[in-house]
């Protein structure tokens, strides 16, 4: 539906005579295209702007390799920088801090982002890959059948869920989960929360209270990978109010360009730990910055092409 970056830049640089180095004017023209490509990939405007400024500096004056076009060269610079920002300095994104049992993991996010599904996927992963005993608890007192949903998923993956006691508040359930996890010797207890808007005062206060009660080792913000410009609001507000330790991007099995990944990274400075790639319980993978970078630019092949040249 949208042009990819190399097509855009191809058009720009075709009009230019080839020179030994990328001059300022060429770079400025190219950066407008980069900005547009990022915006079409749903990178938030402020994030796109900062990113372009950073790349502009790197690109200006850089010598153009003989065997590639200036367009390809710019794509490579942009791609490299994207990977750098997306990866951060986190050596192992998929690792979770779950030593000193029972380790609480708090799952937060907007309505329908994929928290409950991701809670169960993570529990399954911890159980199968790391041999952890996991307890899952639903603190969702809002959505109809939310607790039943987590219960059914628990049964499917063979992970225990905290028994449902109707009428309890989220904080009461969190306390009970902590107690149960301690008494019964679980390694990890996962707290799935109700979806909430980042501007919903009551519900944001509720999740703060849950955090204060349980002191989570990980607080994971679950974000729809198809999110547009609103990603900055979500990232800023949740991080400011609850303090997140990492991000999971869901629905990356869709054909969205995934610009929210860059926005999340840039705004929170926290690692993207996993991506959700489907509804099934094993559709969860560690985050690969290079894949998402290629996707944001709507391409991937040209980079290896430049690399070989």
């Amino acid at each position: 539906m949208f042009e990819n970056l190399s097509d855009r830049l191809g058009g720009v640089f075709d009009k230019l005579t080839k020179q030994g180095a990328l001059n300022e004017a060429d770079v400025a023209t190219a950066m407008r295209e980069v900005r547009t490509a990022l915006l079409e990939a749903d990178v938030s405007l402020t994030v796109a702007r900062d990113f372009v400024d950073a790349v502009k500096e790197k690109a200006t004056g850089q010598a153009v390799t003989k065997s590639v076009t200036p367009g390809q060269q710019v794509v490579k610079i942009v791609h490299d920088e994207l990977i750098k920002v997306l990866a951060g300095d986190d050596a192992h994104a998929g690792a979770l801090k779950i030593d000193s049992p029972p380790a609480p993991i708090l799952m937060v996010g907007l309505q329908g982002s994929g928290k409950t599904t991701t809670t169960a996927k993570l529990a399954k992963r911890l159980k199968e890959r790391e041999g952890k005993r996991v307890l899952m608890a639903s603190l969702d007192t809002q959505r109809p059948a939310a607790m039943e949903q987590l219960g059914i998923l628990g049964m499917q993956i063979g992970v225990d869920t905290l028994p449902i006691i109707p009428g309890q508040t989220a904080v009461q359930i969190a306390k009970r989960a902590k107690q149960q996890a301690t008494l019964a010797g679980y390694d990890v207890y996962m707290l799935d929360t109700a979806g909430r808007l980042s501007i919903d005062e009551t519900l944001m206060a509720e999740v703060e209270a849950v955090r204060n009660e349980t002191k989570p080792h990980e607080t994971i913000l679950v974000v729809d990978g198809l999110t547009g410009q609103d990603a900055v609001n979500t990232a800023e507000n949740f991080n400011a109010r609850v303090g997140i330790s990492g991000v999971v991007l869901t629905r990356m099995d869709g054909d969205g360009r995934g610009g929210a990944a860059l926005s999340m990274r840039a705004v929170t400075g926290k690692p993207i730990k996993f991506v959700g790639l489907g509804e099934k319980m094993d559709a969860l993978e560690e985050f690969h910055p290079e894949r998402v970078a290629g996707r944001i630019l709507g391409m991937g092949d040209i980079v290896s092409l430049v690399e070989k040249a």
């Binding site: 749903d42 729809d224 198809l226 609103d230 610009g259």
Partner: peptide
């Protein structure tokens, strides 16, 4: 979903 970006077109 109102939070969806340009993927809504697809």
């Amino acid at each position: 979903d109102a939070t969806t970006g340009q993927n809504a077109l697809g």
